[in-house]
């Protein structure tokens, strides 16, 4: 039983991180109808930019390497780069493609993925780096002593960070003017335009917020597995989460992430041995696909009505 709980909790915690990446997708899809495949590349770009700045900043400014000032300065610089990237994407790539078919927009983001990956590695080099957030990857002592469970402290703190961000975003969406505008645009582009919400600004903001989410996701993932090219594959992990939760629902992304994270780990541990292991790679997709056969619009997605 303890082992089961351990696997379950470990899965749920990694699910939070999937949800973090999926959240970036949902934000952009809701506001602009673009299925942004480049979200994974953005995560990679953000993490690499952050690490790159922490490496070069001490040399430029004379601050002590690894100090808090370097961390925050690098964070701000990385965040600004993400915002610039988001606005540039909206300007250069998406604006000329307004009113094109969704599949065209999807493919253009695949092109964008390659571009961002190339730029990120071109600037900062392509070797694997370590990212140290100052949180050690050790089991939580309290749980180990009292319940004999191995739960990584890092995972817990990362999940808490992610949850704080979810709450902050939810509050922003609910109570600020910008958030209201974002929700209006997500609801209905034309109606939002007709009450005077500037659509282009909103898109720029959404891409920036997605950049911010990508930065947080990149920091956590990067600290866990090292900042390397494989970070871009987090996007692939987020896809089944999206299908499960529905493309347009923020709570869906979170719950989908939790389900995928937990079931993936449980399947690997309990089903894996029967078929030779390594099923983590495809299990989420199969699960999502089977789920879709029952509910084609995902858990919380909008019901699609076909009209001729």
């Amino acid at each position: 039983m303890t082992f089961f709980l351990e696997v379950l909790i470990g899965g749920l915690l990694s699910g939070v991180l999937y949800a973090l990446v999926a959240l970036g997708f949902v934000l952009i899809f809701k506001a602009s109808g673009v299925f942004n495949f480049a979200q994974g590349a953005m995560v990679f770009f953000a993490a690499l930019t952050f690490v790159g700045f922490t490496e070069v900043l001490p040399g430029w400014t004379g601050l002590a390497p690894g100090s808090g000032a370097v961390f925050w300065l690098a964070f701000i610089l990385a965040l600004s780069s993400m915002i610039v990237l988001g606005i540039a994407t909206e300007r250069v790539v998406l604006r000329p493609l307004v009113n094109q078919a969704p599949i065209t927009l999807f493919m253009v983001t695949i092109g964008l993925t390659f571009f961002i990956e190339g730029v990120a590695q071109g600037i900062w080099g392509s070797h694997v780096r370590r990212l140290d957030l100052g949180i050690e990857d050790v089991p939580v002592m309290f749980l180990l002593d009292n319940f004999d469970m191995m739960i990584s402290q890092f995972d817990v703190i990362a999940a808490v960070l992610a949850l704080v961000m979810f709450v902050a975003l939810a509050l922003m969406f609910q109570y600020t003017k910008v958030g209201r505008a974002l929700r209006a645009v997500a609801d209905d582009h034309q109606a939002a335009l007709s009450v005077g919400i500037p659509l282009k600004h909103i898109w720029a903001i959404v891409w920036s917020v997605a950049g911010f989410v990508a930065l947080i996701a990149g920091l956590i993932w990067g600290a866990r597995n090292g900042v390397q090219f494989a970070l871009t594959f987090t996007a692939l992990k987020a896809l089944p989460v999206l299908i499960l939760g529905g493309f347009t629902s923020v709570p869906g992304a979170i719950i989908g992430g939790l389900i995928i994270g937990a079931s993936e780990k449980l399947a690997e541990v309990y089903l894996g041995p029967f078929v030779g292991g390594g099923i983590e790679g495809w299990f989420p997709y199969m699960l999502a696909m089977l789920f879709l056969l029952v509910r084609p619009e995902g858990l919380f997605g909008e019901k699609h009505i076909d009209r001729v």
Partner: peptide
């Protein structure tokens, strides 16, 4: 990397 950039840019 340049190949990636050019490839992506060309697709866009």
């Amino acid at each position: 990397n340049l190949e990636l950039i050019i490839f992506g840019a060309l697709i866009i």
